[in-house]
Design a binder for these strands. Structure first.
Length: 836
RNA sequence: GCGGGUGUGGCGGAAUGGUAGACGCCGGGGACUUAAAAUCCCCUGAUCCUAUAGAUCGUGUGGGUUCGAGUCCCACCACCCGCACCA
């Protein structure tokens, strides 16, 4: 062969077809090899693959191909998280059907992924908008309903009166709908919920076993679940009612000087009924902004009611306030105010002139020490608290809870920050919720043999609101129970539901059931799950919940879906802007000397911060163009080089060019493989054996950037060496080490050196343990901790010899300059440090 | 405010408490060429210098432990991320 250049434009496609034809990456669940399930978070079919996807899937791909080389049966599937709002927005803006829009996006993106040469098992591909998939999802939802994990209640939602739809919190910006700009209303609607709170304790405890998850994600989930333990008890009110409150600090109960309820609390609402002042105050509380800045500076506001609350121990009558800082949906919506030891209560008491009593002190002698200008929430010893005096905070908590329980006026309780998961969406493009509303029988599940409840195709998006709601016929049906006229539920499931079990469907796809437990037992849990950190809470928590819930109802025996999680960094790019603040894309600018100017007319351009690629900043680079220009392998290599995978990767033109140069460099090196070569080059052979081990370790630790660096080193050494058997070994080693990373080049070169089989099916190269050890080492010689000289000695040289060699060094002698040697530290095979 | 992370050359980054800056990019010099591209070779932390040598400084800042600290401990600074009136 004489080609001097590797041509990706012909090689890439050829090998991609070869893998497809051979079924190289089709997972065989009957194989007796050890199983390895590698999964990247499946994409939303937005229309184009972006660099973030490329990075994500390249990492997973290297792992999948590596595992295969290591003798595993690998499951590495791909599918589409295909329901969601962008499809409906497209329908409204471009007058296309959400389904058609989604399908054509999937087709385009699949072609893009295939051009990158990912080792995916496309036989298992599905989209969550396939009726087969969402039909099984409806069945699982009904299973959960049967065991009481699904319920319906009235709940407050963000309602956009113009678009006539419910908005998620993220879609409300400064109190206005993100699309319509209309003032968002709070509305009470009947909503479906999943009882994730039943699993709060389990989901929290389960985090402890997820050792191969990033600590950061575990912590985020822990905080989100938000377990807190304390006392729930009731105050007797002067109005004759009882007011339940929750506190995590029952130990400070003697420091309580007021009681406060939320503006939406029933007690406040009752007062508002015949008092305009109260009504006005409540309205003011609700008006307060919800932005971070608004909360930061929000003043504590209260309305003093004529009601008093009786202290359970002292019997003292404490004033009852309606306060803007008390939340209705946490605890009981009412709190006991302890100004001395809670900052919010402190601010409130200061403003309304309420007593601030110290009940915790660092030392009992400081019981009467005045309070400073802020609350003291810390630990200490209890003071000014009758029978609690002298106890620690912990003891006092236990004591108060015990007395409350004995006296039957309170209970130790656990309160969670985690709420039940509201899954109703007044949207078209989602899984229909499989229930029927009947006047006589109320809520009736759709019988399973009538699933899937499919979406109607003939819908229009001309009018705002839910197309299912106003469809002429779709919702009208008969009651499965009584046979009378009834209506279908027109809400659809939150799209996060679709991604909560897709990994189970990848593992097995029977048509008559959501999954096959025997297959799940073979493949689950996912060995490596890779995706963006933005899913740290919602998706990953929901997926954990579904897995546990399904496991709980004996569908299978897997508790945690993802054994190891890896959250990769973003792909970033420099930004370019004109003087007027408008952004320019990378291909609209060029470098003119040290400055940036527009390609069009040379107008000066300001280059700005390196940030995540985004359409709004126009700093995006389209993978397709890059692949067309440099080939898939150069892009894949770039994605793995330089930046550690968990950190951001700055895209650069020169970087991708460097990768392309390396592809060609390797091609030339592989071309120098000489089947007739003879002779040994022990140093090079040693480097090759070391690299085989080191690259494997790096890949297993997902340290791709380090693996890349080692491959560069071995390549450089092999290039410099003269032809020999050892050099052939090194060249073959490089070829196999890059195979998971640059598979097209690897296949092409593998064929060129005369191999007929696919390198994708080849095993990882063997190494000789005896070749890992160097026989000479370079020793550092220090004087007073500073490097003075280095010497090369046989490995394992005796301490005394090392010391003698060190002292013999001319440089060392010069540095010593006759000083008296107090001590000599010798670390074998490492260094000698002379202390004077 | 609470929680977490990061900080090393011009840039991305390497470095079981043991030679800081591997590897890549950028930059400089040279070879090849009519020329260019491609390729190859050399140099590339800073300062000093009597310059093939040598010295000093150097991993955000200030302390500490140690024969020896990018790495361990204490305090601080900056930036990034998450949560946020959670009782």
């Amino acid at each position: 062969m004489t080609e001097t250049r590797f041509d990706p434009s012909s090689a890439d496609g050829r090998w991609q077809s070869a893998w497809t034809q051979a079924g190289t990456f089709t997972a065989d669940s009957n194989s007796d090899k050890p199983k390895s399930y590698i999964l990247e978070m499946f994409p939303y079919p937005s229309g184009r693959i972006h660099m973030g996807h490329v990075r994500n899937y390249t990492m997973g791909d290297v792992l999948a191909r590596y595992k295969k080389m290591r003798g595993c049966e690998v499951l590495h599937p791909m599918g589409w998280d295909a329901f969601g709002m962008p499809a409906e927005n497209a329908a409204m803006e471009k007058k296309v059907h959400p389904g058609a829009w989604t399908r054509s996006n999937i087709e385009a993106m699949k072609a893009q992924l295939q051009r990158i040469g990912f080792a995916l098992d496309w036989t298992r591909e599905f989209a969550t908008c396939d009726p087969e998939y969402y039909g099984h999802e409806q069945a699982l939802f009904l299973d959960m309903y049967e065991v009481g994990l699904v319920y319906r209640r009235s709940s407050e939602v963000n309602w956009d009166p113009v678009d006539m739809t419910v908005l998620a919190n993220e879609q409300v910006i400064d109190g206005k709908g993100w699309r319509s700009g209309a003032e968002v209303e709070k509305r009470k609607l009947d909503q479906w919920f999943l009882k994730i709170t039943d699993f709060a304790e389990e989901l929290l405890d389960g985090l402890g076993g997820l050792e191969d998850w990033p600590d950061k994600v575990r912590l985020m989930q822990e905080n989100w679940i938000g377990k807190s333990q304390g006392l729930e008890f009731s105050f007797d009110l002067s109005s004759g009612e009882k007011l339940p409150v929750y506190t995590t600090r029952p130990d400070t109960i003697f420091g309580s000087s007021f009681v406060a309820v939320a503006a939406d609390h029933p007690v406040a609402q009752a007062l508002a009924a015949d008092n305009t002042e109260v009504r006005d105050f409540i309205a003011e509380c609700k008006r307060g902004g919800t932005t971070a800045a608004a909360l930061e500076t929000a003043e504590k506001l209260g309305y003093r009611t004529p009601i008093t609350a009786r202290h359970p121990f002292t019997g003292e009558a404490m004033p009852l306030f309606i306060a803007n800082f008390v939340l209705m949906d946490y605890g009981t919506g009412a709190v006991m105010g302890v100004p001395g030891h809670d900052q919010r209560d402190f601010e409130f008491a200061t403003k309304y002139g309420l007593p601030i009593v110290r009940v915790v002190a660092s030392d009992p002698a400081l019981a009467d020490a005045p309070m400073g200008d802020e609350a003291e929430p810390g630990d200490g010893v209890i003071v000014n608290s009758d029978f609690l005096d002298g106890k620690s905070v912990g003891e006092a908590k236990a004591d108060v809870i015990a007395r409350a329980e004995q006296g039957d006026w309170g209970n130790g309780t656990t309160v969670w920050r985690l709420r039940d998961w509201g899954i109703s969406r007044q949207r078209y493009w989602g899984t229909p919720i499989p229930f029927i509303h009947c006047k006589a029988c109320e809520i009736v599940p759709v019988p399973k043999d009538q699933l899937p409840v499919t979406l109607p195709d003939d819908v229009d998006f001309e009018i705002p609101g839910n197309p299912l709601e106003r469809h002429p016929t779709w919702k009208h049906t008969t009651c499965p129970k009584c046979g009378g006229a009834a209506e279908r539920e027109t809400d659809t499931l939150d799209t996060f539901t679709n991604s909560s079990w897709y990994f189970l469907r990848f593992a097995s796809q029977p048509s008559d059931a959501p999954f096959d437990p025997a297959e799940i037992a073979k493949w689950m849990p996912v060995q490596h799950y890779i995706g963006g950190v933005e899913h740290a809470i919602l998706h990953l928590l929901y997926a954990r919940f579904w897995t546990r819930a399904l496991s709980h109802i004996s569908k299978f025996d897997v508790k945690e879906p993802f054994a190891a999680l890896f959250t990769q960094g973003m792909v970033t790019h420099e930004t370019y802007s004109l003087g007027d603040g408008s952004w320019l894309s990378p291909d609209e600018v060029r470098k003119d000397g040290a400055d940036w100017v527009t390609v069009k007319d040379g107008t000066p351009v300001t280059s700005g911060r390196v940030v995540k690629m985004s359409k709004s900043k126009k700093n995006v680079v389209d993978p397709d163009n890059i692949i067309a220009q440099y080939g898939a392998d150069a892009v894949r290599w770039f994605m793995l080089s330089d930046s550690p995978p968990e950190r951001d990767l700055p895209w650069s033109e020169s970087g991708i060019e460097g990768c392309y140069r390396f592809v060609q460099r390797l091609w030339r090196l592989f071309g120098q493989y000489d089947a007739n070569a003879a002779g040994e080059d022990k140093a090079l052979a040693r480097k090759a054996h070391q690299a085989i081990v080191a690259v494997a370790e790096d890949i297993e630790a997902l340290g791709f950037n380090k693996a890349v660096a080692r491959i560069y080193e071995l390549t450089g050494a092999a290039e410099k060496a003269v032809s020999s058997e050892s050099r052939n070994f090194a060249i073959r080693a490089v070829l196999h080490l890059i195979a998971p990373m640059m598979p097209h080049l690897a296949e092409e070169a593998h064929e060129r050196i005369g191999e007929s089989a696919l390198i994708a099916d080849a095993p990882w190269p063997e190494h000789d343990p005896t070749m890992l050890v160097e026989d000479e080492v370079t020793i550092a010689i220090q004087h007073k901790g500073k490097l003075r000289d280095t010497i090369t000695v046989p490995k394992g040289a005796a301490k005394e010899d090392l010391e003698a060699f060190a002292l013999a060094s001319e440089k060392v002698q010069r540095s010593l300059d006759g000083a008296e040697i107090r001590k000599v530290i010798v670390v074998p095979d490492r260094l000698v440090n002379i202390v004077t």
